[in-house]
């Protein structure tokens, strides 16, 4: 059952002279209950996809395509409808835990706030529910933590609080944008366990945006690899880590420290002026003539999708 269905999504930003082609004709099916990891290098448009799902993009953006959620096109929904969906149906956990919390509000209140606003719950009840939530997240010394301010917590703790506050309304889809960024190993593990845990308990689906391979290997069902605004490969977790098919996906795996630290040759593409044809062809060791002129079609082999002429 498809829960979130993205069809031909293109996002462009117009800056002074140039146009940034952030996302180019991306189609993606996010099944209910699954964890999909969207991976790729910095600036390849991962976060842009996340932000276009909840329509939080700057004014100079032009979005084309369709994003279906519960039979409704989110790109055509009104601001009022979106406010109903945001938080309640689709929750997004943003990057940078330190800055995502209001510095002068107590943490307990910040977790409880969505309940008060969306469910019209009285504060007292909401705070006690927030307390329960924190209890589930195994926060120790609960009484003080509820009354603490964000700056008294470490980055990892704050990240968990943010996850908790986006979870209180039991959203159907959780989008986590780099949930482990800037955290140390231990905090990362905690956040990882948290996400897997919540997903299992609430049965919601998770769209994980990350470049943390360990994290996605650990908790993702499917992996989608992005390069320069396009999805190059979507595959089941085990299949992908066993044998990535797309040349970029392969190169990405080989650039990991444990796989020999081999860099991908050539410079990354300029998003203002992406190459024609396959976006990866200038750096691809397997390129053929066709790659430079034509966009490769999406090819399905063994239930995985690859956008490359090698498999045509």
């Amino acid at each position: 059952m498809s829960c979130l269905h993205i069809k031909n999504l293109s996002v462009q930003f117009k800056t002074g002279r140039d146009t940034v082609f952030a996302v180019d004709r991306v189609s993606l099916d996010h099944t209910g209950g699954e964890t999909l990891a969207l991976m790729g290098e910095t600036g390849c448009g991962k976060s842009v996809i996340a932000n276009s799902i909840v329509r939080l993009l700057p004014e100079n953006t032009s979005i084309k395509g369709e994003i279906f959620f519960k039979g409704r096109d989110l790109l055509k929904a009104s601001e009022r409808e979106l406010n109903q969906i945001r938080g309640q149906e689709i929750a997004i956990v943003l990057q940078n835990p330190g800055l995502a919390l209001n510095p002068i509000k107590k943490l307990g209140k910040q977790i409880a706030e969505p309940l008060v606003i969306h469910k019209k719950m009285p504060w007292k009840q909401a705070v006690s529910q927030a307390e329960q939530m924190m209890n589930q997240l195994r926060f120790t010394g609960l009484k003080e933590k509820i009354k603490a301010y964000p700056f008294q917590f470490s980055g990892g703790m704050n990240q968990r609080v943010i996850i908790a506050s986006s979870m209180v309304l039991d959203p159907r889809v959780i989008i986590a944008d780099e949930p482990t960024k800037g955290l140390d190993m231990e905090a990362r593990k905690e956040v990882m366990r948290e996400l897997a845990d919540i997903k299992k308990r609430k049965g919601s689906s998770l769209l994980l945006i990350t470049h943390d391979f360990d994290l996605s290997r650990e908790i993702a069902d499917r992996i989608a690899i992005m390069y320069a605004g396009e999805i190059m490969e979507i595959a089941q977790n085990k299949k992908y880590f066993k044998e990535p098919l797309h040349p970029y996906a392969r190169a990405l795996m080989q650039s990991l420290p444990e796989n020999g630290f081999k860099p991908i040759p050539g410079p990354p593409v300029a998003m203002t002026d992406p190459p024609r044809g396959c976006k990866f062809h200038p750096r691809c060791p397997f390129r053929i003539k066709k790659c430079a002129g034509e966009r490769p079609p999406e090819i399905t082999i063994n239930g995985r999708q690859v956008r490359c002429f090698l498999y045509a």
């Binding site: 939080l56 938080g87 929750a91 943003l94 800055l99 995502a100 606003i117």
Partner: peptide, 22 residues
């Protein structure tokens, strides 16, 4: 422009609420 305002928006809080409560 700070992060917690964006995260309040993602939680679907109204503009009025963000202005006076955040």
């Amino acid at each position: 422009e700070m992060g917690f305002i964006v995260s309040a928006e993602t939680l679907g809080f109204s503009k009025f609420h963000i202005l006076f409560s955040e």
